[in-house]
């Protein structure tokens, strides 16, 4: 090994030691500065206020929703009862039935003004609801007779 290469290695070693020394000093200085720095503690009240406000708002939304559902239920119930009760009471004025029919756009179960018993009403419902399913091979002409196909 030549003297030059020895010197180069020595210089490299010195540089390494110097770098390690500076690194050590730097970490110590940084740590000392950060360790001695007073910590700023953010008050938790801001977060608490936000949390309370959020919970309150969500509570209000839930309560409003529940109330509206309750009101809708109550508003609809008398109307539905009217549909069933109306035919049974013949003394009820015709106008109330008309309003009920207007509220329900579907075909009325009974003709307005007609007085029918419960049995007749149920029979008419059954007739409207149930239909005899045509067989797959049944000719269309037969269905047309009954006015099923227009």
């Amino acid at each position: 090994m030549t003297i030059e290469s020895n010197k180069a290695i020595e210089a490299e070693e010195v540089e390494l030691r110097q770098a390690l020394g500076h690194f050590r000093q730097s970490v110590h200085a940084w740590s000392d500065a950060e360790y001695g720095r007073p910590r700023i503690v953010h008050p938790a009240t801001v977060r608490t206020v936000w949390r309370i406000a959020t919970i309150g708002a969500l509570g209000c939304i839930v309560a409003a929703g529940a109330l509206s559902v309750f009101l809708i239920e109550h508003r609809h119930q008398p109307g539905e009862a009217q549909t069933v009760i109306a035919p049974a009471t013949s003394s009820q004025p015709e106008t109330s039935l008309k309003t009920t029919a207007a509220k329900t756009p579907a075909a009325p179960l009974v003709q307005p003004g007609a007085s029918v018993s419960d049995e007749e009403l149920m029979a008419s419902i059954d007739k409207d609801v149930s239909r005899i399913a045509p067989s797959a091979m049944e000719p269309l002409a037969q269905l047309m007779d009954e006015g099923e196909i227009h």
Binding site: E15, Q18, A19, L20, H22, F23, S26
Partner: peptide, 10 residues
Amino acid sequence: LAREQVKKVW
């Protein structure tokens, strides 16, 4: 120079 060395080590 010292800062450069520290940066290299980091």
